[in-house]
Amino acid sequence: MASGTSSLRLRLDRLGVLLSALCAVHCVAGVIIVAVLGLGGGLLLSPEIHRFGLVLATIIAALAIGLGTMHHRRRGPLFVATTGLGCMAFALFVGHGVEEAVLTVAGVFLVAVGHMLNLRKA
């Protein structure tokens, strides 16, 4: 694999881990702030934010983990990240609240693990 492609993949994997962490913080903080303080429900728990996050996570994972899988020929990172994206997608279909937060946090955790596994195979 060309050095430029490998470097891009590494940066995308790191960005994927960072975005996963930010998403998890958003979900947990959003539920806590809305539940405890009753503030920001319209903005923090907006379905548009979650849809945008899922699209962004899917694009980054497809590029980074797809390139990684072609390079190292191991499907583990792809399987883990795809499972995480599935959890995140399923979270869009449950009501706002704990169920959505649990599915989303589990999903972003799995996507982050997929990116980290991909980084280890670099």
Rank of each mutant, 00 (worst) to 15 (best):
A29W: 08
L39C: 07
V36P: 02
S20L: 03
L43K: 06
A81T: 07
V111G: 05
G84Q: 11
V34P: 03
L56P: 01
L56R: 02
G95L: 05
C87M: 15
A64I: 06
V102E: 06
A62G: 13
V31H: 11
V102K: 05
T104N: 10
G66Q: 02
G38W: 01
L103G: 01
A29K: 00
I65N: 08
I49T: 11
L92V: 02
R9H: 07
E99F: 07
C23P: 04
P47E: 00
G40S: 14
R73V: 08
L45H: 01
P47A: 03
L67G: 00
A112G: 11
V80T: 11
G97I: 07
H50A: 01
V105D: 00
G86Y: 04
A89F: 15
P77N: 09
C23W: 11
S20G: 15
E48D: 14
A106D: 07
C27V: 03
R11A: 14
T104W: 03
G86R: 03
L56H: 02
L103P: 02
L19S: 05
G16H: 06
C27Q: 13
A89P: 05
H71K: 12
V111A: 12
L54A: 00
L63W: 10
R14Q: 11
V36H: 08
L110N: 04
F79G: 06
L110E: 06
S20Q: 04
L63F: 14
V111R: 06
A89G: 15
E100G: 06
A91C: 13
S46D: 15
A62T: 14
I60C: 05
L44N: 04
R74M: 14
C87H: 12
